[in-house]
Simulated scan of single mutants.
Amino acid sequence: MATARNASHGSTTALLNFVALLCSIPVIGAGIWLSSKQDNECVHLARWPVVILGVLLLLASLAGFVGAYWNRPALLAAYFSCMAALIVILFSLVAFAYAVTAPDGSYAVPGRAYREYRLAGYSDWLRHYALARWPEIRLCLSASELCREIGRDRPYLTAYQFFHTELSLSR
Rank of each mutant, 00 (worst) to 15 (best):
Ala46Asn: 06
Trp134Gly: 04
Arg127Leu: 06
Tyr122Thr: 15
Leu45Ser: 12
Leu58Pro: 02
Tyr107Ser: 06
Ile87Glu: 07
Gly105Asp: 00
Leu56Arg: 04
Gly121Ser: 04
Val51Asn: 02
Trp48Ala: 10
Arg115Met: 03
Tyr117His: 11
Arg72Lys: 15
Ser142Phe: 14
Ser35Ala: 12
Leu76Asp: 06
Tyr117Pro: 04
Ala68Tyr: 01
Asn71Trp: 11
Pro73Arg: 13
Arg112Met: 08
Val55Trp: 00
Glu41Phe: 14
Gly54Glu: 03
Phe65Ser: 03
Tyr117Ser: 12
Met83Cys: 11
Arg118Ser: 14
Ala84Asp: 11
Ala102Ile: 12
Tyr117Gly: 07
Arg118Met: 13
Cys42Arg: 15
Pro103Tyr: 01
Asp104Glu: 05
Ala68Cys: 02
Tyr98Asn: 14
Arg148Phe: 09
Ala68Val: 06
Val50Cys: 05
Thr101His: 00
Glu116Ala: 02
Leu146Asp: 11
Asn71Gly: 08
Val55Ala: 02
Val100Met: 01
Leu119Val: 04
Leu131Val: 15
Ala85Lys: 00
Leu53Gly: 08
Ile150His: 04
Leu56Tyr: 05
Glu149Val: 12
Arg112Glu: 09
Ala85His: 00
Ile52Asp: 02
Val51Gly: 01
Met83Leu: 15
Leu56Cys: 08
Met83His: 05
Phe96Trp: 11
Leu86Ser: 06
Ala60Ile: 11
Val55Asn: 01
Leu86Gln: 11
Pro135Tyr: 05
Tyr107Gly: 00
Val88Ile: 10
Asp39Asn: 09
Phe96Gln: 08
Leu131Ser: 09
Gly64Phe: 01
Met83Thr: 14
Met83Pro: 03
Leu141Ser: 09
Arg118Ile: 08
Arg152Glu: 09
Ala108Val: 11
Leu62Ser: 08
Asn40Ala: 13
Ala74Lys: 10
Phe96His: 12
Tyr114Trp: 07
Asn40Glu: 12
Gly64Ile: 10
Leu53Phe: 09
Tyr122Val: 15
Tyr117Ala: 07
Ser123Cys: 06
Cys42Thr: 13
Ala74Gly: 10
Ile87Lys: 05
Asp39Met: 10
